[in-house]
């Protein structure tokens, strides 16, 4: 290193505000490493799922085909993946709708304190942190006690809701605490009925929060495993299928399943975000064209 090399940072060491502090570069490094570690492994399996029939579980990649996707949906040993998909999506949609509606209504309650609200609040926290399998066992035993056989549309639905609802209510709780009460009063002042106030004022203003609850509800359900394990009855949801596959399938079919579920997740996010974008666009367009 010779002293003639002019380093811009060395030359003006006193002007700290100009350049970025050294911590920026360190933390940027941490951030990049984190993102790589977050996405790297996932991209590996997406890649490996496109191997041909010779493919194995590790690199290097052998060929390129859709063989393992075909294998996934046709082979018996991979289980009822198709059915699992259908059930999981249906269940997730059901959970999403119920979570959105119930959290929204419960959120309305939590805007002001009422007698016993802490009981409800800590019940929710309890339900959120309770070990999933324990809860699943409890629900299973309860159904057994009443002589009802567990099914994914009843016991699994309830078990999942006991997990998605606290999430949803907490989000609504945060969103609604930032909702200006005078909007409601203004609506009332102008003659709106309570229903009109909800539909014309509260719901449209809270749309982003409601979409967030819906996204959470869908993902938490679509991916739920521990609570569903003891409550789904004889028919499996997708995560249960994946679980059994991890125990007995050792082919890239497993990776193909990963690729497919990821695509489904992204399609759902895309639909959600697209809907929001469309609503926003309509709003501004309506404002512009008149």
């Amino acid at each position: 290193m010779t002293t003639t090399v002019e380093h811009p940072h060395r030359r003006r060491p006193t002007r700290r505000r100009e350049g970025r502090p050294w911590t920026f570069y360190v933390l940027a490094g941490v951030f990049i490493a984190y993102v790589l570690a977050l996405y790297g492994p996932m991209f590996c399996i997406y890649l490996l799922s496109f191997q041909d029939i010779r493919g194995g579980l590790v690199f290097p990649m052998k060929g390129f085909s859709l063989h393992w996707f075909n294998d996934l949906f046709t082979q018996v040993r991979t289980g009822d993946v198709k059915g699992g998909f259908q059930r999981s999506i249906q269940l997730a949609l059901l959970v999403t709708v119920i979570t959105v509606v119930v959290s929204f209504i419960a959120g309305l309650a939590f805007r002001r304190r009422f007698r016993g609200d802490s009981i409800v609040f800590y019940l929710m926290i309890g339900s959120l942190v309770a070990p999933g399998l324990v809860l699943g066992i409890g629900v299973g035993l309860l159904f057994q006690y009443f002589g009802v056989s567990p099914h994914w549309t009843t016991s699994a639905l309830g078990a999942q809701l006991s997990w998605t609802l606290p999430f949803g209510v907490l989000i609504m709780f945060a969103v609604m605490s930032r909702f200006d009460r005078s909007w409601e009063e203004a609506a009332r002042d102008l003659g709106a009925t309570p229903w009109q106030t909800i539909w014309l004022v509260i719901v449209p203003i809270l749309t982003p929060g409601i979409v967030a609850v819906a996204l959470f509800g869908f993902t938490l359900s679509y991916d739920e495993f521990a609570r569903t394990l003891q409550t789904s009855g004889s028919l499996n949801t997708l995560p249960l299928e994946i679980w059994s596959m991890t125990l007995n399938v050792t082919s890239p079919s497993l990776y193909a399943l990963g690729t497919v579920t990821t695509i489904v997740s992204f399609v759902i996010i895309g639909i959600c975000l697209g809907t929001i974008a469309l609503i926003q666009k309509r709003r501004t367009q309506r404002a512009a064209t008149h």
Binding site: D180, S182, W183, E185, A186, D189, R286
Partner: peptide, 15 residues
């Protein structure tokens, strides 16, 4: 009666 609120409380999603 009609009220004009302190920070106006205009509905942010309506023109």
């Amino acid at each position: 009666t009609a009220m004009m609120f302190q920070s106006y409380a205009l509905f942010p999603h309506l023109s």
